[in-house]
């Protein structure tokens, strides 16, 4: 009997220790909770200034395109409801298929990606995915991990250059990508955009890899694209779901973008 009692005591103490240790917040949460959204947005603004100096990220100023992106953004934000971030979508002139999120809700989309999208819904899917990274604070966490919080906040010019390079180049890990996809699929559904557009866009990207090759950048460098396509295809929309097309003249927008390239 005593042996049984001792055994139970040991099991109970192990369980208690287990439980207590799960309560310790991870260093990631610690650093992130220290960094306020306002600070992140401040950093994001500085980085946007920095990144514009890079000829590869020359921002496009085009009224047609801006209003189109605004329409897409509003559709998504309306579906998202509340968010602490002030989103801004910047198109930049680069034939590579690329999209990435910078700290503070700034999302950059390349002209190459806009060209590849067959309809505005596909671009919305990409933007929704990037919003997923922002909302889950993946961007700022990646920077903290690779550069360090204290250095990040110095605002030094050299540092900013490095930060914008990291933000624009290195990929997220699989779990973060999956999380951003999950967020995007749900957001698309709420925005009355059929989540299947995500799969169709991914598939086109995969098919294009042969011809584009080096042009494929961050957005598709991460592995397991087939799994991601599958997840997007298998996403079950609510029975009451009805798709509403985004009213935009996509051909005209693509024309506007292609004129810039010439």
């Amino acid at each position: 009997m005593r042996i049984l009692r001792d055994f139970l005591i040991l099991i109970a103490s192990a369980a208690l220790i287990w439980y207590l240790f799960t309560l310790i917040p991870s260093s990631k949460e610690n650093t992130l909770s220290k960094l306020k959204i306002a600070q992140e947005e401040q950093l994001g603004d500085k980085l946007m200034k920095e990144i514009q100096k890079d000829p590869d990220f020359k921002l496009i100023e085009n009224a047609t395109l801006d209003s189109a992106l605004y329409t897409i953004q509003q559709r998504l934000l309306h579906a998202m409801g509340t968010t602490e971030y002030e989103y801004r979508i910047y198109p930049f002139d680069n034939e590579m298929v690329n999209a990435f999120a910078m700290p503070g809700g700034n999302i950059l989309v390349s002209s190459g990606l806009i060209q590849l999208a067959e309809k505005p819904e596909e671009l919305a899917a990409v933007i929704a995915h990037e919003m997923g990274h922002v909302e889950n604070r993946h961007v700022i966490y990646k920077l903290i991990k690779e550069i360090g919080l204290s250095i990040l906040l110095t605002g030094d010019q050299m540092v900013l250059g490095e930060v914008s390079r990291v933000a624009g180049s290195s990929a997220f890990d699989r779990r973060q990508e999956a999380k951003a996809d999950e967020f995007a699929l749900a957001l698309l559904e709420d925005a009355h955009i059929h989540p299947i557009v995500m799969a169709s866009f991914f598939r086109r990207l995969s098919d294009e890899v042969g011809s584009y090759n080096e042009k494929m950048q961050v957005f598709m460098t991460h592995p397991h694209n087939n799994a991601r396509i599958k997840a997007a295809l298998e996403y079950k929309t609510d029975s009451s779901f009805s798709a509403e097309p985004i009213e935009l003249d996509w051909t005209q927008i693509k024309m506007a973008v292609s004129h810039l390239a010439e």
Binding site: Y19, L20, F21, T22
Partner: peptide
Amino acid sequence: DNFKGYVGV
């Protein structure tokens, strides 16, 4: 969190 707890144990 479960993994953290386990490492603790």
